[in-house]
Design a protein around this nucleic acid. Sequence first.
DNA 1: CCAGTAATGTAATGGCTATTACGCCTTCGC
DNA 2: GCGAAGGCGTAATAGCCATTACATTACTGG
Lengths: 223, 223
Amino acid sequence: MTECGRSRLDRRRIAFIDAAHDLFIKQGYESTTLVDVVTYAGGSLATLYKLFGNKEGLLTAVLYENVRSCDIVVQQIGSRDAAPAAILLDLGHEFARRFLDPERVAFSRIVIAHSLKNQEFSTMFHQTTQVRTGDSLARLFARWRNQGVEFLGTPEGNADLFLGMFIADLYCEAINHGAITCNSHQAVAERVEFFLRGIGMKGANLTEKAPDADGPKPAVLEV
Amino acid sequence: MTECGRSRLDRRRIAFIDAAHDLFIKQGYESTTLVDVVTYAGGSLATLYKLFGNKEGLLTAVLYENVRSCDIVVQQIGSRDAAPAAILLDLGHEFARRFLDPERVAFSRIVIAHSLKNQEFSTMFHQTTQVRTGDSLARLFARWRNQGVEFLGTPEGNADLFLGMFIADLYCEAINHGAITCNSHQAVAERVEFFLRGIGMKGANLTEKAPDADGPKPAVLEV
DNA sequence: CCAGTAATGTAATGGCTATTACGCCTTCGC
DNA sequence: GCGAAGGCGTAATAGCCATTACATTACTGG
């Protein structure tokens, strides 16, 4: 072990996974041959098969090493001493950034393409990414409710609604990767305000004070 | 032409497309061989190649024949003489039904899997399904606004937000097709109420009648 | 019923790529 | 330095499937 406490095989393993990671993202799983991976990473086919068994094993390893849930982020941002509205705004920015990350989009595409052949695989992915994050978010809502923050709906339902706003973008991006305008006409702040009004939570207007509502104001009629 | 005004070749064409449609949905595009299609549909490989050129041509034909936008539905339901809230509720039910239709889910999966190889293809699909429907929905919101219905946000943004609630389910279903509980903790009616509150539209409570506004005119008009 | 055309069935072809086999070379512990 | 393990490189193997070719059969229109 000449370097950083890792065996030769271990270093090869990491090189393979990194190479496959890059190639899978750039050209997709099907279009990436194992020779591509070996050429990119160095090493040999024999070693690759010894390490991962077969191509699918390599994919599994790549996902296992790289797919992370956002639940940590939810817990960190959620534990800040700030108003729920402000926390949700930060979370919105974070989700928008992470869900549209090319890596995440590419992984989603790969998993979806494989979901017929390997169902437990895609279920694991969904569980690790979306469900885990949703649960964490639901716990946050539940905590707020316990603390006396008022809002409509269930914590789980609200978590899904909040996540859903950003997952729709991910879906869109998975189909036409950057080629075409996504459906995100709504900036993050507007979405969060929409969401806050939707669940009837105080602080709907993140910038100004909420006005008294004694009757509808004249609408702004520009067409 | 012995039957219903269609040539022999035309009938074969339809049989091929129907067979490919079924097989693509059941076992995916990659896993379906052209021999599978011929076996299922009858006919011969030679005829299939004469008709579609190659496998991708067959896929194109299948999608072209079967993919339909929801914009007609939006126009039909949207032109009913009913309150916006009621119309949105109906649209919500319709979207929930159509977006989770196995055919739609399967097509989405196929298109996403191919979006790296054939970008114009997936762009066309996205345009035909989502964008078209979104545009139609946006026009509906714009019309309501012209008629004096009050709501926040832009018609386009609201259309995306409304669609997004159901597209998130589609994405979820594309990953784990029915295996695992989707994220639709929220029933359609609850979602629509959430949405109505979110955009600040009257009729958030779908059971009671919308009150008269003292600013602009009462809202139900015919165009 | 007949000729000609159109469709069929079967059997190549060919390319691609996952997977395996094996002899050579490098590295590692001593 | 030395002698094994353990990787490396290259070259088969092998299966799968899109695509093509062709001889045979079925249909069509008169």
